[in-house]
């Protein structure tokens, strides 16, 4: 008997990944913990931010790309902290230079700093410019199915609706919208933001998501490296459960044991 069944890899813009868990690199205690947690997650795609280099800092200080080397992981630079399309496009161009022409990016354009909710108007504008400039754009967006459809129409290679607010750990607030987005999409749909618990990561996959992207759920766990392993298995379990197909819901009970042959019959 086999424990493992065949599954197609996650395909994003011509790249293939066996793991459907994508992780961020923020909020860890130090570089060692970052590297260990990311390894334990089994991820193949790692997102990071682009910021001004601290000048005058010890040039020998550990660099993020030392613990998540581009030779081992597919790096996904993001535009976190950008509030305009212009800033997001600039950041992506810097990232492409940083990574010697690597053109896969995670676009996020935020609306304000209390909700970090996506500004979809700026996001749509940035997506269009980036795609015309040759980028493969995985886009963070709201859970609005119409916006998701527009982003796909513009040519985004993956649509990534929020489960709930970034860093909130509130899980998937509107699973019905996520399902609507999945049903209409012909590019991968990944829940990005809001996952707090392993059960929520599994839920995203059971809904039919192609993957999950998370950061805080691992980095802010009491034991991040251990949680990274839990999330790896949760995403795998959710994916397998989705492919297996859950039982139908019933109005009443239905005994699992046969009625025939009972001793009091």
């Amino acid at each position: 008997m086999t424990d493992f069944f065949q599954d197609a890899p996650l395909r994003v813009a011509g790249r293939e990944f066996a793991s459907r868990l994508l992780v961020g690199t923020g909020k860890y205690r130090d570089m060692d913990e970052t590297g260990e947690a990311i390894a334990a997650s089994g991820t193949e795609v790692v997102t990071f931010a682009v910021r001004r280099t601290n000048l005058g800092q010890d040039a020998a200080a550990a660099n993020l790309l030392d613990v998540v080397p581009p030779e081992r992981y597919t790096l996904l630079p993001n535009t976190a902290g950008c509030y305009t399309a212009q800033d997001a496009v600039r950041t992506c161009r810097l990232a492409r230079e940083l990574l010697d022409g690597h053109n896969l990016v995670k676009l996020e354009v935020l609306g304000d700093d209390t909700t970090l909710y996506p500004n979809v108007v700026e996001t749509l504008a940035a997506a269009e410019t980036l795609i015309n400039d040759g980028f493969d754009v995985m886009v963070y967006t709201s859970d609005d199915p119409i916006v998701a459809r527009e982003l796909e129409r513009l040519g985004c290679c993956a649509v990534m609706p929020l489960g709930s607010l970034i860093g909130s750990g509130h899980g998937i607030q509107n699973p019905h919208n996520i399902r609507l987005i999945i049903e209409q999409a012909s590019v991968p749909v990944l829940v990005d933001a809001g996952i707090g618990a392993a059960s929520e990561a599994a839920q995203a996959m059971e809904l039919g998501c192609d993957g999950v992207l998370m950061n805080s759920a691992i980095a802010h766990a009491r034991q991040p490296v251990r949680m990274a392993g839990a999330m790896r298995r949760a995403v795998e379990a959710g994916r397998e459960a989705f492919l297996a197909g859950r039982m139908p819901r019933r109005g009443g009970a239905e005994a699992s044991s046969p009625l025939a042959g009972r001793i009091n019959a």
């Binding site: 961020g24 690199t25 923020g26 909020k27 860890y28 970052t34 997102t47 990071f48 931010a49 682009v50 910021r51 001004r52 280099t53 000048l55 660099n63 993020l64 790309l65 790096l75 630079p77 993001n78 976190a80 902290g81 810097l94 940083l98 970034i166 860093g167 933001a193 992207l213 998370m214 950061n215 805080s216």
Partner: peptide, 8 residues
């Protein structure tokens, strides 16, 4: 001048 840092 920019570089990569941790982020989600």
């Amino acid at each position: 001048i920019v570089h990569a840092i941790g982020g989600g």
